[in-house]
Nucleic acid binder design. Sequence first.
DNA 1: CCATTGCATACTCCTTCGGTTATATAACGC
DNA 2: GCGTTATATAACCGAAGGAGTATGCAATGG
Lengths: 124, 124
Amino acid sequence: MVVSSIFEVLALPVRQAIVERLREGPRTVGELAEGLGLSQPLASKHLRVLRDSGFVSVRAEAQRRWYELRPEPLREVDRWLEPYRWMWESRLDRLGDRLDAMAAEEDAAAAPATETATDEEKDR
Amino acid sequence: MVVSSIFEVLALPVRQAIVERLREGPRTVGELAEGLGLSQPLASKHLRVLRDSGFVSVRAEAQRRWYELRPEPLREVDRWLEPYRWMWESRLDRLGDRLDAMAAEEDAAAAPATETATDEEKDR
DNA sequence: CCATTGCATACTCCTTCGGTTATATAACGC
DNA sequence: GCGTTATATAACCGAAGGAGTATGCAATGG
């Protein structure tokens, strides 16, 4: 798998689950497969993707492979999120960012009612 | 597309690009397609996914459709990230979380050298 | 009215990728 | 050495979904 976006890796619930499990500490392939109800090859495959994208590191101990979570990619998600935070954080110290955003908004038009998947509108 | 994870939506660079573009304010389908070099149907399609997953809302103005970014899903990403923040933030007020995590870690084993995609090891 | 504009949707093609099964490899304990 | 354990990888399959093309449809403005 050629990872062109960090989110691609987290897109699959099963890979998300592996990451979440690894929050508790390093785990072997067998433990992860067992714990998440995956076949061993499947676990290995997903761990391969996680490894190639930097989400995990591996240590060999005898025939065991200990997989451990690495901060970098997650931190990258955090950084990606940064320019959006003002949207739900109304803290004063974010006001500067907000003003920058508004300047860029100037050219956009205005309008009435809003339509979203979260309300009833979805299936008209 | 049946969205089973918020990350699935952001997985595609083209959808990421749309979201980023919408940071500057509401845009019509045509503006987005034009600005990102997409065919109109393709833009519509991706906007459909973004809409169904709550990333954007739509307002109709004549034949125009103004798409606007919504905070909720992004906020959800932020919340998902929360339990991982201690990994790169060593602030004291995160120590509590860290201790919780360590308690859960107790059962995991330890080991030597580390192997990651970000270093030379990748292609042995 | 009618041509045009702006957008959504249906349909098709084709690649990608997740999952299974089978096999290779390597280190272990006896 | 040998069976066993732990993992990786290859081969295969099927479904999903992204992109393109064509079309439908509504509102517009002359």
